[in-house]
Amino acid sequence: MTSQRAALAAAGAHLAALGLSPGSSGNLSVREGDRVCITPTGTDLSRIDPDALSVLDLDGALVSGPRPSKEFPLHTAFYQRDAEARAVVHLHSRQATGASCLEPWSDKSALPPLTPYFVMRVGQTPLLPYAPPGDREQAERMRALPFPFRAALLQNHGPVVTGTSVRAAVETVVELEETAALLLSLGTRTARLLTAEEARELARRYESPWGD
């Protein structure tokens, strides 16, 4: 068992304890060189066995272990588009899934710049048009988007995020969930958003993708 796989199991337990992974929903992965270790299909994130992960190559072919989550194309798409990606988290968390059912704020971000922390820790978060779970074409569309991002919302489905470590991916998805909760709590009231200049300065200072 590698430290990366142990970190993945700990992350799953943490996300489940936060209530962000109802039932056996959601899937996590880590990249180890030219291999992707991903939770098997039907895995309860609170009980990930780090020694029983599915191992894929970067094209998604099963190398060893049990059948992977059907969402594996999303994971390999992120690894293919971002050489620095080392972990991917996909959840069906309530608030982010709720936000995925709304019209997007812009072409590049489903959510607006409500707080500095959303811009700093998450950045622009495109909304990918609805497709059935596990759809390879949706994953390919995400891979081919021509602007930087480390989080996306799948329409009527939920969030998927990446990070340079398991911890970074977990922090991103938690901040995304909090921002979605804030957006939904505002309802139809007009919110004061960060100005374009404020958001650009934060993105520059924290090297976060925003507006590119």
Rank of each mutant, 00 (worst) to 15 (best):
C37M: 12
D82V: 04
Y130G: 07
Q95L: 12
R136A: 15
P126T: 12
F147C: 11
A17K: 12
A131P: 01
S69Y: 02
V89Y: 02
P129I: 14
A17T: 14
E137H: 02
L56D: 06
G33Q: 08
P22D: 11
V55L: 09
V30A: 03
I38R: 00
P113S: 11
P132Q: 14
P104Q: 10
L145C: 07
A77T: 12
E71P: 06
E137V: 14
D59M: 07
D51K: 03
D82K: 01
R31G: 09
A99E: 05
P133I: 12
A131S: 14
P116Q: 12
S69I: 06
D51C: 05
R31N: 09
L102C: 13
V63D: 05
V36G: 00
S21D: 06
K70P: 01
S109H: 02
A85N: 03
L45C: 06
S64D: 15
L20C: 04
G42Y: 05
A96R: 03
L91N: 09
G19V: 11
A61H: 15
E84F: 00
G42N: 06
E103A: 14
L58Y: 01
P112N: 09
V30D: 05
F149W: 00
P116C: 09
V89G: 10
V89I: 14
R141T: 08
W105C: 12
S25L: 11
S93A: 14
D51R: 08
L56E: 08
L128S: 08
L58Q: 06
L114P: 04
A17D: 15
D49L: 04
A99W: 00
Y117E: 15
S69W: 00
L102W: 04
F118L: 12
P129Q: 10
E71G: 13
L28S: 07
